[in-house]
Simulated assay, not measured.
Amino acid sequence: MPAIDLNCDLGESYGTWTIGDDSAMLGVVTSANIACGFHAGDPRTLLDTCTAAAAGGVTIGAQVSYPDLAGVGRRFIDIAPPDLEADVLSQLGALDGLARASGSRIRYVKPHGALYNAVVHHEEQARAVIAAVARYDPGLIVLCLPGSALHEHARSVGLRTVSEAFADRAYHDDGTLVSRREEGSVLHDPGAIADRALQLVHEGTITSINGKAVAISAESLCVHGDTPGAVGIARAVREALSGQGIDVRPFC
């Protein structure tokens, strides 16, 4: 039976600023990429999200980012590699502490936003992120874009990697994501997104923004929690997968 993980970015609310419906999403996804306070998420939000994930049997991952609350982590920062390594270590320790206080722990790491996009090609920053992960806990899994610099650096030091694809994001022909600054970069039709998820599992491809079938091998599928109708989209994806006998389960 084919299987795939369904992950989502959660814990991004801050104070009175509420982003997404984490409670509903935790009833759909199998892995939660929880913010670590650098791009989003105040301590109470992160603790509550970890507690709810642990109670629901959802695997917890640390979503590390640049220190960019104002930009929600979506602006590139030309940060020195030693500083980035320390920033990632700080985020891992903070979220892992909250997860352990909730009866769980972090099992994997996924960069967020601009950092995610940067470490596709930015060798020094990719190396810094991996150095932090290996230094904190070499048993952690790195969730990343297949073929990225982050993917290669993780494998070079013996870390397990899990490749992911995005059901609700547009792709270029080379398998990279279309920038959120461009029109059509985020998809909103639940049916079309569910169809892309099925295409990924059954055919190992995703159709690019130009209509090309791009080969992508992924063990995890990401749906975003901060877009309008996000919960309905996630449910449509899960129901479509389950309806065709695909086992939706965490990768760890």
Rank of each mutant, 00 (worst) to 15 (best):
T45H: 03
E123Y: 01
A86G: 04
I4E: 02
G139N: 14
A55N: 12
L200E: 02
G15F: 10
G11I: 00
F38E: 15
E123M: 01
A132M: 08
A132D: 12
C252L: 10
R44S: 14
G211P: 07
Y116A: 08
E124G: 02
P228M: 08
E203W: 10
G139C: 09
R135A: 15
V162Q: 07
G71S: 11
A192Y: 01
S23H: 14
C222A: 10
L92H: 04
A94C: 11
E164K: 00
D22G: 04
D42E: 10
S23L: 12
Q91W: 14
V223Y: 06
T59Y: 03
I79T: 13
G184C: 12
Q199Y: 00
M1Q: 13
A154F: 09
S242K: 13
I60H: 05
R105W: 11
G93P: 06
S208Y: 10
C222N: 06
L221H: 08
N7P: 06
G56F: 00
A165K: 00
R75M: 13
H172P: 01
A131D: 14
A70E: 15
E203Q: 15
G243T: 08
A53N: 06
H122P: 00
Y136W: 14
V109K: 00
A149L: 09
I209D: 05
A24M: 08
L98D: 07
L98R: 02
R169Q: 11
G11Q: 04
D22T: 03
P111F: 05
A215Q: 13
I206S: 02
D42Y: 11
L150I: 10
I34A: 08
Y66P: 03
G147R: 10
E182F: 10
A154C: 12
A240T: 05
V201C: 11
D168K: 01
R155T: 13
G147N: 11
A24Q: 11
I206N: 02
L200T: 02
M1I: 05
D42F: 12
Q244T: 11
T45G: 03
T51Y: 02
T51R: 15
V223L: 04
L159V: 09
E182K: 05
D173F: 13
A24C: 11
A165W: 01
A86P: 02
L47I: 00
A54G: 11
A128I: 10
R44G: 01
L241R: 04
A24K: 10
A118E: 08
A167T: 03
H151Q: 13
G11M: 03
V119Q: 06
A99H: 09
A52H: 06
S156W: 12
H172G: 03
T59N: 03
H122V: 04
L143V: 15
M1G: 14
T59S: 14
I130H: 07
G147T: 07
A192V: 03
R180V: 13
A114Q: 04
T161P: 03
S179C: 10
H112Q: 13
A3S: 15
Y136P: 02
G113T: 04
G61S: 14
A62T: 07
E183F: 02
G158L: 13
L159H: 06
E183M: 05
